[in-house]
Design a protein around this nucleic acid. Sequence first.
RNA 1: GGUCCAGUGGUGUAGUGGUUUAACAUGCCUCCCUGUCACGGAGGAGAUCGCGAGUUCGAUCCUCGUCUGGACCGCCA
Length: 581
Amino acid sequence: MERTHTNGALRLKDVNQTVVLVGWVAKRRNLGGLVFIDLRDRTGITQIICDESTSDSIKDVRNEYILQVYGIVRERKDKNLKLPTGAIEVQATKVTVINKAETTPIIIADETDALEDTRLKYRYLDLRRPVMQQKLFERAHITKVIRHFLEDNGFIEVETPILTVSTPEGARDFLVPSRVHPGSFYALPQSPQLFKQLLMVSGFERYFQFARCFRDEDLRADRQTDFTQVDIETSFLSEAEIQELMEDMMCLVMKEVKGLDIARPFLKLPYFEAMNRYGSDKPDIRFGLELQDITDIFKESAFSVFNSIDPKKGTIKALVLPNMAESSRKDIDQYTAMAKKYGAKGLVTIKYQDSILEGSAIKFFNETEKDQLINRLGLHKNDLILIIAGDWEKSCEALGALRNYFGKELKLYDPEIFSFLWVVDFPLLEYSFEDQRYYAKHHPFTRPKEEDIPLLDTDPSMVKAAAYDMVLNGFELGGGSLRIYDQSLQAKMFGILGFTPEDIKRRFGWFIDAFQYGTPPHGGLAFGLDRIAMILTHSESLRDVIAFPKTASASCPLTNAPTPVDQKQLDELSIILKDHN
RNA sequence: GGUCCAGUGGUGUAGUGGUUUAACAUGCCUCCCUGUCACGGAGGAGAUCGCGAGUUCGAUCCUCGUCUGGACCGCCA
């Protein structure tokens, strides 16, 4: 189709050129003998001006019609500074309607007022909106920069299967019934973890893939059932070398996509410090408001909430909120409810309104405790102190959730800032009292820190993993680890996790077998591409950077997926449905 | 599995401590208008108030259930 320019291209320098434009009618302003049309394509909007002589049918043109416009570029009398093309307009000499359009159910403009449900039902129209187009263009730009970076650094792109085998320990799998093998199922990959490790066994040394991953778990604003991982694995690199390479990559993305120079190297925060100071393993360090430990002050406390905690695993954590001492009863009830939601037993609140400690817990404190509290927390007039006592992890996380809430509520950070860091030194294992066994915190192939390997025999819970998460503004962008390549170490790991040899053979024998033929030291990580795109585009939800996302209940308003299928299809798959009525 | 919030013309909202023409904005249609750009002006069409049951003389409104959407907890190695 004849077209000389896009609708975002023309400028003052093009005046008097003869041009041919195509695009959608974004807006028509009919002044009677004179008609203005905003012609839109993915690059922008150009104003077309027509008079009655141009075409009789011009008054029949409606929004979202597709037009081909022949005309001459003119300088505008009244320029529109809001548009890049606002200095010019195209005086139409001929206008052809390429296609008509029904009235759209949603307004095609950045400021659509349609609810998300409606937007998803008519996603193809929602994606016509310039803001949405910009988000997807930006996502594609991120993808492009990452791919170029990895290719330039010797990484090879390899595809791994979508129909694969159910993997051990992790999220719920999506299963696909086999027609050929009745009663057997493929699983969709939660990540290509095992395949990428096998590619290291094969000797590719540097692998990457934009991998679709699937997890059958409940959705959130930042979680979808199917999502895209930038999956990366390397051989012969140390933890520090992998991290440096990934910093190079993300800094290039920030430079190319956002035009920002990010400070190097990224802060490396050990897991325990992240939890103690920020109450999160993915801390938002754009603002301070750090948690403080006051456990030792109240060792001998007369206050039952403080003296009933387990001295080994328990903790007392405080969060000081400046100028919040005048919070109402209602506000404080709300903070308490929030703390409880995140697993705290309760919330102790103390006001330092007129430089005097006030609160229902104060009567249990002696003078030494009061003095120590004031000094330790460095209290100022009008501070509000929130205290959570109990299990270390739960207390930190609950207070960390409050910290995040106040960081946002009190606008303690500039939303344009991007604060990267690594969280490192994660514990290798997590003990479940319920199941009376250890679970791998990352996955069972994660390598322990070299110096902690002897602890595997004596105190497994103290062993740290060679695992690392890249964190940005309170979101986990990605995470990874060095992997176990030594077979005896792997055997020891399985022993600690309580797997019998039969378990191992049945569940991932095919994977372990590969390791006996010369496995290089290897490690890698995976980034959540959707999350990167979400944060860089300042989107509220992952759904805004995914072309066709699913709703919170894992359905698609556009296609109505998932849907029932014909009995014939079920029969072929040897599936008999349980009666849900 | 759980908690909370929402469902009213095409779209987004208001509203009713229970009764009559259900309001506003925008979109849509018709007419007028040669410098608009969120154009303006005049007129018009468009809603069984998510669905089902209950209470009542009477329910968009109250009660219960249900469905859909959203946020979060659990879950997500």
